[in-house]
Simulated scan of single mutants.
Amino acid sequence: KWKGEGTTQNLENIVIGRCYDYIRTVNPAVGEKNCSQIWEAFKNAFINKDPCSILPKDYALFINLSLHTIPPNKSLFWENNQLLVNSFSARGRRYMSLGDTLFGFVGDFLNWCGQADSPGLDYESCPTTMECENNAVESFWRMASITYAQQSSGVIHVLLNGSADGGAFPQPGFFADYEIPNFQKGNISKIVIWVVDDIEGPDIDSCGAHSVKTLETRLKTLGYDVTCTDNYK
C-alpha cells in the first residue's frame, strides 16, 4: 500500500549483530552496551504505531542507550556522497561520520516500519518521505543527526559533492535543517568545508559560488570561523 520498500528482512538480527560488531570490533573504545536493550528501544520507537506518526523524539531511549562521545576534531558532515564519506572516514579511524557512530552504524542502509494495531514489522512496503514526513526511517535519521551535531566539537569537517544536481548544499536537507541548528557553538573552533566533484562528473558547485556560498555565508553569520577548499584529495 505504500510506495517505499518494506522492512529489511532479518532486521532484528542485523541491528543486534551490528551493535555487537561495533562494540567488539569497529570501536571497542565505547565500552559495554546492551545490544538487546538497544534493539528493543529501537523497535519500540515505531512498533504498533501508524507508520506516518513517528517522531524523532520516539527514538530518545534508543539514542540514550547507544550514545557515546565523538572525539573532538573527528566529526565529518556530508550531503550527497555517502559512499565517498564511508571510504574517506575509514570507518571511524580518520574521521567519525554519523555512520561511524554506534547509533548511525546500526541503521545504515536499512529500511523499516511497523503498522498501527499490529506488533509486526511491515515487510511489504513502508511510506516514503514524499508520502509522509513523519515516517520511521526519516525520523530516525533526524534524531540521529540532531544528536550527532550536538555531540560534535573542535574542528568540524563538511564534505560536499560539487557535482550534485541542485547544488552541493541542499535546502531542505539534513545538514541545513537538523545539524547546523544543533551545533554547540561554544564547543566548535572552526568549520572546514571540502567540495569534491565526482570523478568525470560536472563541476557544478564550488567554494564561494552558488549553494556553497550560501552555506559559507550562513555559517559566518552565525559567527563560525569557516574555510573552504575545492577538490581536496
Rank of each mutant, 00 (worst) to 15 (best):
D165R: 13
G120I: 07
D58Q: 09
G107Q: 09
T217A: 01
L160C: 04
T147D: 07
S152W: 02
S89H: 08
E216I: 00
D108M: 08
E179P: 01
D230L: 00
E179C: 00
S206Y: 06
N111R: 12
H157E: 03
P56E: 06
E5D: 11
K190N: 13
F169N: 08
Y232I: 13
T101K: 03
C35N: 00
A29P: 03
L83T: 10
N10M: 10
N10H: 12
G4F: 09
F175E: 01
E200L: 12
R18E: 07
F183W: 09
I16H: 04
F105D: 11
K185Y: 10
N161K: 09
I63L: 14
K57N: 14
I191P: 02
E200V: 02
Y148G: 02
C19A: 06
N86C: 02
L121K: 08
V15F: 05
I146T: 10
D117I: 09
V106R: 04
S36W: 03
Y59V: 07
E32K: 14
F103E: 08
V158I: 15
I146W: 06
F183A: 03
G17M: 06
D108V: 08
L98M: 12
H68F: 05
E12I: 04
D197S: 03
F42A: 06
F183C: 06
E79A: 09
I193V: 11
A168S: 08
K33D: 05
G4T: 08
E133D: 13
C52F: 04
A60I: 12
V196F: 12
N64I: 05
C35A: 00
D100Q: 00
Y148H: 01
N73G: 08
